[in-house]
């Protein structure tokens, strides 16, 4: 009995930490841009499948997505040429350099056959900018739209990205190597090294984000945009850049969580969406604004998920998503109490 409980605890904790990275991304995006990003989970899928490609020595399809996105970005910003050709050429040049650099880094990494950690860094380099590009395409044009409009847009983004994933990688699952194979017996429970890797990464990500937002000027700009967008704008903070940065960082966190999760399950084009939504269930606990409460939320989600997988596996998702409603009601009464 204790063995089972311990096993479920470790399993739940591992899941919870993966969702924690997602919740972190969601809270970051929501606080800075007020976007409830249903599509956040798709970066999990992109991260995992990009890593799978790199580890098997293929050019990852993400590279073409990135280059395509950069081209689209240049086309959409063609109006800059009329206003100020110097800055426009600088901007377009920057986009071209970014594309070429991504291509060169990928080719170099494939030629050198880097270890898993190295490949993860390369995959991160390919996926994270996609976040900023999606911000440029979908949020930047309508800064004052309502929450509901952004939700619907993110649904569209999620569908498109998932479809592109299917187009690029097909429906087959891909195995992904863990950072370190094997694990240790801790008492009666076997813990894979990957779980430790997830723990360490999650802690590093959270600590990194904390230090970044408290002790750097850019981080403070992010915080300012999160507190009051208009006020931040008046203080000379380029809120569009902070928004893009929030999307980029969130994409990075989510992609990392995908790369860490993939060895435990397998990577396929559908894997991200559900992970993203479970991050939401946890994040909702903190109202999508409170990091520590979100962390508690995802741990509850992870625990409930591994327990229900053991007790009533068919109902796992049903239970996890039903949990959202009491959480939201609790948040809502809290919000009302604060309003009074």
């Amino acid at each position: 009995m204790t063995d089972t409980v311990l096993f479920l605890l470790v399993d739940g904790l591992t899941n919870g930490l993966v969702y924690a990275l997602l919740a972190l991304s969601l809270v970051l995006v929501f606080t800075v841009t007020r976007v409830v990003n249903i599509a956040q989970g798709e970066y999990v899928m992109l991260g995992a499948l990009t890593l799978a490609d790199l580890l098997q020595g293929r050019m990852p399809g993400t590279l073409y997505l990135l280059i395509g996105g950069l081209v689209l970005c240049a086309v959409l910003d063609a109006g800059r040429w009329r206003r100020d050709w110097r800055r426009a050429s600088l901007y377009t040049g920057g986009l071209i350099v970014a594309g070429v650099a991504a291509l060169a880094v990928t080719r170099g990494a494939l030629a050198l056959q880097l270890p898993v950690i190295g490949m993860m860094a390369v995959a991160l380099l390919l996926v994270a900018p996609l976040g900023a590009l999606i911000y440029r395409f979908t949020v930047h044009p309508i800064p004052n739209a309502s929450t509901i409009v952004f939700v619907i847009i993110s649904v569209g983004v999620s569908m498109s990205v998932q479809g592109l994933g299917l187009l690029i990688w097909g429906a087959n699952p891909y195995p992904v190597d863990p950072i370190a194979a094997g694990g240790v017996m801790m008492g009666p429970v076997f813990i894979p090294y990957q779980s430790f890797a997830i723990l360490i990464t999650a802690l590093l990500a959270m600590g990194g984000l904390y230090l970044f937002s408290e002790f750097t000027l850019i981080g403070k700009a992010l915080q300012a945009s999160a507190m009051n967008r208009l006020g931040a704008q008046f203080c000379g903070i380029p809120v569009n850049l902070t928004g893009a940065l929030a999307f980029l960082l969130a994409a990075a966190f989510s992609a990392v969580s995908g790369m860490l999760l993939a060895p435990l399950i397998t990577a396929n084009y559908e894997m991200g969406f559900m992970v993203g939504l479970k991050g939401f269930v946890g994040g909702a606990m903190g109202g999508l604004i409170d990091y520590p409460l979100s962390l508690l939320g995802v741990m509850i989600v992870g625990g409930l998920e591994s327990t229900s997988a053991y007790v009533a596996s068919a109902y796992r998702d049903v239970l996890v998503f039903s949990l959202l409603i009491p959480i939201l009601l609790w948040r809502n009464t809290r919000a009302r109490a604060e309003a009074r």
Partner: peptide, 13 residues
């Protein structure tokens, strides 16, 4: 679904 998603985004924008 790729096209559907695009339609949704473009229409709203």
């Amino acid at each position: 679904v790729i096209v559907f998603g695009l339609i949704l985004v473009v229409v709203l924008l």
